[in-house]
Computed example of a mutant assay.
Amino acid sequence: MKAMVYTEPNKVEIRDIPEPTLKEGSVKLKIKYCGVCGSDISIFHGKHPRAKAPLVLGHEFLGEVAVDGKKFKKGDRVVAYPLLSCGDCLPCRTGSAHVCNTLGLIGIDVQGAISEYAYVDEDVLFRVPEGVSDKAAAVIEPLAVIVRAIHQSNFKALDTAAVIGAGPIGMITGMMLKHMGASKVFISDIDEKRLEKAREFGMVAVNAKSESLNDAVKSATEGEGADVLFECSGAEVSVMQMTDITKVGGTICLVSIPKTPLKINLRDINFKEQHLVGTRVYTKEEFRQAVEYSAVINEDLEKIVSHIIPLKDSENVFDMIANPEFGTVKVLVDCTDV
């Protein structure tokens, strides 16, 4: 079967590889779409601490059951909860398996799904609701990331929200906040094409090259600041600004995961009694909620997808994502086009 294989830093190849062995409890999936994630980009550049070449990338995938299993039948469209937890550590024993001490992920710690076929444990599969398009279904995994982040932030309807970074995660964050009743959603980035997309979703888009997110938020809130702020960029300059943009008693949710330590204004956290909370992935229940919610926001999830690349032509997908001229938001690999 054909698959995208990470072979060394800054290089992937489309290779013919053997199909994996079917294990007890697993089911064979014909992969339709697989999204390219920020973690895949990190792996591509050789900066992920666990990913080792050769590795089939991909954990954001939509598959079609190819052979009847015990729970799913041939033709069922499914998405997979891709986390790999040990089941024995303290987080696993106390209901937090999503932050297992040795947490792994499909496409990082085991072979991924940017491939024609994959074999996945039936216990982690969820049936895609009727009416959800294939494109929208392929975005369910990053949607689950945002479900978790919003839960962590204690966001409430009519809150004013700020999002730093209009990449796929930031864009879905803003979109979800709008759906959940935010009074205003401000989003900043330096990519004007992404900001144009954000405006289509009803967000107040701020180009950080020429405008101040802090000024825009303060102007709309009588100088108070945002109730909640979601940091989705991982840029040090943004991390330094986030406490100023957020109001007294407000919440800052760190959605991005910087690869190196960054400076932060802890004085503001003290003086403004702000709440700083991290978020990593999602619980299995939150993944289920994302599957269910995809039926409500199907059309907007489709709009998040900016590019679909055939598997056979995807060796340069990371270069395309890095090139601002393409204006990528969410890129899917069509694993049926080999």
Score class of each variant (00 low, 15 high):
Met4His: 01
Met4Val: 11
Val5Gly: 03
Tyr6Met: 08
Thr7Ile: 14
Thr7Met: 06
Lys11Tyr: 01
Lys11Leu: 12
Val12Lys: 02
Glu13Lys: 13
Ile14Trp: 05
Arg15Ser: 14
Ile17Ser: 13
Ile17Ala: 09
Pro18Gly: 14
Glu19Ala: 15
Glu19Gly: 11
Leu22Lys: 12
Lys23Ser: 11
Glu24Ala: 10
Lys28Asn: 06
Ile31Ala: 12
Ile31Asp: 01
Tyr33Gln: 02
Cys34Pro: 13
Ser39Phe: 12
Asp40Cys: 07
Ile43Glu: 01
Phe44Lys: 00
His45Arg: 14
His45Met: 06
Ala51Asp: 06
Ala53Asp: 09
Pro54Ile: 10
Pro54His: 08
Leu55Val: 07
Leu55Gly: 06
Val56Asp: 01
Glu60Gly: 01
Phe61Lys: 00
Phe61Tyr: 14
Leu62Arg: 06
Leu62Gln: 08
Gly63Cys: 02
Ala66Cys: 08
Val67Arg: 06
Val67Leu: 14
Gly69Phe: 00
Gly69Arg: 00
Lys71Asp: 03
Lys73Met: 04
Arg77Leu: 15
Val78Cys: 15
Val79Lys: 02
Val79Asp: 00
Tyr81Lys: 04
Leu83Pro: 01
Leu83Gln: 13
Leu84Ile: 15
Gly87Gln: 07
Cys89Met: 00
Arg93Glu: 15
Arg93Trp: 11
Thr94Asp: 13
Ser96Leu: 14
His98Ser: 14
His98Tyr: 14
Cys100Val: 03
Asn101Arg: 07
Thr102Ala: 09
Leu103His: 05
Ile106Arg: 14
Ile106Lys: 09
Asp109Phe: 01
Asp109Ala: 02
Val110Lys: 12
Gln111Val: 08
Ala113Pro: 04
Glu116Asp: 13
Tyr117Leu: 09
Ala118His: 04
Ala118Met: 02
Tyr119Ser: 05
Tyr119Glu: 10
Glu122Leu: 09
Phe126Ile: 09
Phe126Lys: 08
Val128Asn: 04
Val128Thr: 06
Pro129Ala: 04
Pro129Met: 07
Asp134Ser: 12
